[in-house]
Each structure stands twice: as structure tokens, then as C-alpha cells.
Design a protein around this nucleic acid. Structure first.
Length: 451
RNA sequence: GCCGGGAUAGGGUAGUGGUUAUCCUGUGGGACUGUGGAUCCCUCGAGUCGGGUUCGAAUCCCGGUCCCGGCCCCA
């Protein structure tokens, strides 16, 4: 009986590995043209790093264990927290903003299904050190560039959490997470019923998350302006108004005295407007969509997601937003915008990639093996060269070359060596010619360039 | 964690309780120690695992594992 792979893991055969590396290289090339630098963090971290950020609830989906020193260790379930941990401990004093990217495997103990595995790869970037419409727009434009560099079309949806958080602040805390879930799950009817039940149906939440596209922002601004006048109808008690607003302290009286414009600014909607305009300058088409909430864990402003065109429910391939995590890990507060790309899902969509180029085979008669190996060594400085290790005769070597898919075979025997003119054989068609070593080398290099 | 469908050589498959498990492809070798994918011959290689029923199980039953699809979840 053979040993199986652990559930939810995959082997990548040469063709798959080549495709993945090829796409990863395209994305790396693209992200580096934006001036981002690669970073790498450990595959495992202290468990605490992830529970601080995401809460104890994630424990059951984390691969964790005690090491031999009794430490609680976790295989990383994502890469934002490790990168921010690294930032806090080693990069806090570098010039801002910091532009970092990463590509690495992550682990989650989940039920595998289409596009979801227990070991999966994330490609992501973080722009650390500023909370400006400019940096948010850059992050989104970068994400868009990465996805298209993989040869994929995606629809971008951008949203903003300021207003939703404020409205949620008017809702009894016990109802909030349920409401959030319904928004996230797009359970519109249940959401409406629930809002009505708790007397919050007049706050504009349903209207807000229905807002899509160009006019969405104006309408959101209207909702925001009306909001201060509103209180919960017959609710069980006063909700913790304003608590969800990230500027921590504002009394009720002061709040309601504000003008609509101030409220709008405080919610960040004006900045969001700027960001959307900048996206235009970046040449990115994105749909404004206040339904994007991304779980609301620690995102503070703009949030965004991307969906691959032409796929169904599994189509989300990117998610990100603006957050403040540095202080959680003991650093000075720093706003950052980042995103992660689901590399495996992208690979499921990518098509039209060729495979690796087959090598050139150097075939030789057994009596000149030593000379053949020397020649192979020379050629290998420029081109992939394969020589027989099975002790096969010349005919069998050619047969093997054919099944490797080789397009060229160099043939040498005593005669070719004596004349100093190896034979180059075109496998397709069977043309052969005798060349000097230098001519041979040039010819092969050219042939390799073309493809 | 839940529901459903699966699992037979490396890949693809046939086989409804009965000798030695079918075929294709593939691997290695040979015909063929100076010219390829053809042909022929030989070889290698399999019923997911564990229990049960039975004189006898790839086949029927139970459980585990893994895969596929869906639910939950998705930082």
C-alpha cells in the first residue's frame, strides 16, 4: 500500500509546476514594476499572532501544535499578519510608505472543495504607512494589474466601511454580527425582516448595500447626512451610537449638531470619492458596491474584492482593504492597504499556457561517451542538454529523444569527432547537417530564443 | 462538522458471489552496438484500508481514509 497525500494537499507534476511558476513570474514581474519588494516570513509562527488578529474563533481552522519546547505554534493561515509582525519588529523606522509583496503557501484546516485546499498559495501586497485615497487607489490598481498579468479578466468591486459601521453602531450590539453575516451572504430578505424586527429598517442600511455603480456615492452621502437625525425606533435600549466609528469619542449632542458635510467627512466618504476618481486615472474600472464588507474584522475604510469573469459562486480571486494592524502587534499605529490573491483559484482559470520547452538531446555512440559529456558540459552553458544515462545505443537514444519531445538532437560518434563537425538533426522532418561546434551552438541558441 | 456521488496496474477502463481479474496506454528489455514516435516479442504493474456475511467477496453489509460536488466557513 502506498502512502497518500494528506487531505487537501496537492502534488504538482512537472507540467502543473511549470504553469504555476510561469504565472507567478508574470505576477512578480508586474508587482516589481510598481516598485514593490518581496518579503518572506516563516511558514510557522506563534499561534498568538493569528488569534490576536482574528480572534479565538479561528482556532479550529488553524493547523496548530506544540513544539518540543512546549510552545504553541501555528502553520500560517494567511500572510498579512506575519508581514505586519515583521514590519513592527524590523521595519517600523524605514521610510514610508513601504511597498512589500509576498508569495507563499498557507494552511487552513477546512473542508476541501473546488478551488479550496488545506495548503494553498497566496500572492499579496501591502502598502504600509499611509491612509490616503492615493495609496488605496494604488493598491487596487496594482491588484488589477497583477490579475491581468496572469491573463485573467476580473470585475472589481470597491466599497467603504465607514457608513456601514456607523449605521451598525445604531443597532443593538447583539444584532450586529447577525446583520453583518446577512449582508455578507447577500440574504436580502432575511436582512430586511431582521431590520424591521429590531426597528432599524429606517436607517437606510438596505438602501445602502443595494447601491451599486456611479450613483452609489451620491446616495450614500444622502444617507449619511440624514443619519444624525435618526434614532432607533422602539428598540430595547439605547444602542452604542458612535462606538463603531473609529474616531472613538463623540457625544450624542455634539454629533447631531454637526452638519451633514462634517459627518460625511468623518465617515471618510469624501476620501472614498477621491479614491474612486483616482482609480479612473489609473485606468481601473471598478464598481462601487457597499455590499462589500469583508467580514469587517479589522478593515477600517476602503475594501475591495475581485471576481473572475464567467465563473459562478467560486469566482472571488482577490480581497483586500485598508486596515490598522500594527498596534495590535505592539507597534506604532500605521494605516496600511493590502490585498491577497487566491493563486490556486487563478490557476484554475488560467488557460493557454504552453508547457516547458523540451531540452536538446545529445546522442552519442558508446565509444565516445567521454567526449560527449565534455561537449554537453560546454553546450549546457547556454542551452538545456540531456544525455543518455541508460546505456542505450544510438537508435534507442533517438527514440528516447523523440518521446521527450526534443526538437533538436545533436549526434556525435567517432567520425564527427574526428572531423570536428557534430551533426544537428531536426526531429521534425529529419533534416540533418554537419556543423562546427560554434555554428552548432549559435544555431541552438537561436532555436531556443524563438520559442 | 453535515449531505450526496465515487475509488480496479503510472494514466484510462471491463467485470452483478465462483479457476490464473479484461482491454488500451504506459515502464523496462529485446528484435536493432550509427539514426526516432511504426511493428513484433518478452517483462513489470491493480480491486482504497479495516472488519463482517459466505464454502467462496473486486462484487453484498458496516466503519475509516481519500477524491468529486454541495452546505457550514472563508481572517
Amino acid at each position: 500500500m502506498t502512502i497518500q497525500r494528506p487531505r487537501g494537499t496537492r502534488d504538482f507534476l512537472p507540467h502543473d509546476a511549470w504553469r504555476r511558476r510561469s504565472v507567478a513570474r508574470s505576477m512578480e514581474g508586474a508587482v516589481e514594476r510598481w516598485g514593490y519588494q518581496e518579503v518572506a516570513t516563516p511558514t510557522f509562527e506563534h499561534l498568538e499572532l493569528f488569534t490576536i488578529k482574528s480572534g479565538e474563533g479561528i482556532l479550529e481552522e488553524i493547523y496548530q501544535f506544540k513544539d518540543k519546547g512546549g510552545r504553541d505554534i501555528a502553520l500560517r493561515p494567511e500572510l498579512t499578519a506575519p508581514v505586519m509582525r515583521m514590519y513592527v519588529s524590523e521595519l517600523q523606522n524605514s521610510a514610508k510608505p513601504l511597498r512589500l509583496y509576498y508569495f507563499g503557501n498557507c494552511f487552513r484546516y477546512e473542508r476541501p472543495q473546488k478551488g479550496r485546499f488545506r495548503e494553498f498559495w497566496q500572492f499579496g501586497a501591502e502598502l504600509i504607512g499611509g491612509k490616503s485615497p492615493d495609496s488605496e487607489a494604488e493598491a487596487i490598481a496594482l491588484a488589477e494589474d497583477l490579475i491581468s498579468s496572469a491573463g485573467i479578466d476580473a470585475d472589481f468591486h470597491v466599497g467603504h466601511l465607514g457608513l456601514i459601521r456607523t449605521i451598525l453602531g445604531l443597532i443593538p450590539p447583539t444584532s450586529r454580527s447577525g446583520i453583518m453575516r446577512m449582508i455578507d451572504k447577500k440574504e436580502r430578505e432575511r436582512l430586511a425582516e431582521e431590520l424591521e424586527r429590531i426597528g432599524a429598517d429606517h436607517l437606510g442600511l438596505c438602501d445602502l448595500i443595494d447601491l451599486k455603480g456611479r450613483s452609489a456615492l451620491d446616495k450614500a452621502v444622502e444617507i449619511a447626512r440624514d443619519l444624525p437625525k435618526k434614532e432607533l425606533k422602539d428598540s430595547d435600549g439605547p444602542a452604542e451610537t458612535g462606538k463603531a466609528l473609529h474616531s472613538d469619542s463623540s457625544g450624542e449632542g455634539k454629533r447631531s449638531a454637526r452638519t451633514g458635510r462634517e459627518v460625511e467627512a468623518e465617515l471618510g466618504l469624501d476620501q472614498f470619492q477621491d479614491m474612486v476618481d483616482l482609480l479612473d486615472c489609473h485606468g481601473v474600472e471598478a464598481t462601487i458596491d457597499f455590499e462589500i464588507v469583508r467580514g469587517l474584522e479589522y478593515y477600517t475604510g476602503t475594501v475591495f474584492e475581485a471576481y473572475a469573469s464567467g465563473l459562478g459562486a467560486q469566482s472571488q480571486i482577490c480581497g483586500g482593504g485598508t486596515y490598522q494592524l500594527a498596534s495590535l502587534f505592539g507597534g506604532k499605529e500605521a494605516f496600511s492597504t493590502g490585498f491577497g490573491l487566491g493563486f490556486d483559484r487563478i490557476m484554475e482559470i488560467v488557460e493557454g499556457l504552453a508547457g516547458p520547452l523540451p531540452p536538446v538531446v545529445l546522442a552519442f555512440t558508446p565509444d565516445v561517451k567521454a567526449e560527449a559529456l565534455r561537449m554537453a558540459r560546454e553546450l549546457r552553458r547556454s542551452i538545456p542538454i540531456v544525455v543518455d544515462v541508460m546505456g542505450r545505443g544510438l537508435g534507442a537514444q533517438l527514440k528516447a529523444a523523440a518521446s521527450l519531445g526534443a526538437r533538436h538532437v545533436v549526434i556525435i560518434g567517432r567520425k564527427e569527432l574526428d572531423e570536428g563537425r557534430p551533426v544537428l538533426r531536426e526531429m521534425e522532418g529529419g533534416d540533418q547537417e554537419e556543423l562546427t561546434f560554434e555554428e552548432l551552438r549559435e544555431r541552438l541558441i537561436d532555436a531556443y530564443r524563438e520559442k
